[in-house]
Design a binder for these strands. Structure first.
Length: 218
DNA sequence: GACTGATCATAG
DNA sequence: CTATGATCAGTC
């Protein structure tokens, strides 16, 4: 699929998918719907990437690099609440000195996001889920300030090697949680004394309470 | 029902 | 292993 040439084109393409079931979308793309949702955690996002012509692959940059837009699917319950937090990117665990918010992957990815709600009733099979109404979003000044403060708080813990103080309770909008294939996956980091240490890879996530605001105020 | 820590698939 | 795409599942 050809990447969209503009924001408007991307939004129009996404809006055209509203009301479509994932079964129908998979059919259009000649994709097979996985039988076991547990083994298909990223399937919905990848399906939408294919349909809309995303270009980033596994590079740490927005999905639609040419027009600077990140694509995020978000599972939404019958009551309109996000069913899950939203993964943003991997958290840097080493070489953290001198990193600034303005140059961070979190800021880069969240500057412009196309949110695609996926209506997901309780225990809904993958192929029964339905695409909702997509919308474009950029952080307001207030949202940006809170995200920045959260990021700086997290990065201070990482830079000082306070790995044991990192948990999902820190951060107002942005939290840090494990991001790994299993508990045995490890990455290089430092302890409080600056000595090398191996620890579980982490990622930045947006709390559901935050994304609920985005879903509500459109 | 919200929340945290753990996990699943795949490309490079 | 690192990055992408996320959701699972037990606990609070």
């Amino acid at each position: 699929v050809k990447p969209p040439a503009s924001e408007t084109e991307l939004l129009r393409r996404a809006e055209a998918l509203g009301g479509m079931s994932l079964r129908a979308l998979a059919g259009r793309l000649n994709a097979t719907v996985p039988g076991d949702p547990k083994r298909a955690k990223g399937w919905v996002g990848e399906l939408l990437e294919r349909e809309l012509g995303a270009t980033a692959g596994n590079r740490p940059e927005p999905d639609f690099a040419a027009i600077g837009i990140e694509l995020k699917t978000i599972p939404v319950s019958e009551s309109g609440r996000p069913r899950e937090s939203t993964f943003v990117c991997v958290a840097p665990m080493k070489n953290t000195i001198g990193l600034r918010w303005d140059a961070s992957t979190v800021k880069l990815k969240l500057e412009r996001v196309l949110w695609v709600p996926v209506l997901t009733p309780n225990r809904a099979a993958l192929d029964e889920r339905m695409i909702g109404r997509p919308f474009l979003w950029s952080p307001s000044a207030e949202q940006s300030a809170v995200l920045r403060a959260d990021w700086e708080e997290h990065m201070e813990l990482l830079a000082l090697g306070h790995i044991d103080e990192i948990n999902a309770r820190v951060g107002v909008y942005l939290q840090i949680r494990p991001k790994a294939l299993s508990g045995s996956q490890l990455t290089d980091t430092y302890d409080e004394g600056g000595a090398p240490l191996r620890s579980l890879p982490r990622g930045f996530y947006l709390r559901p309470s935050f994304t609920y605001q985005l879903l509500s105020h459109r």
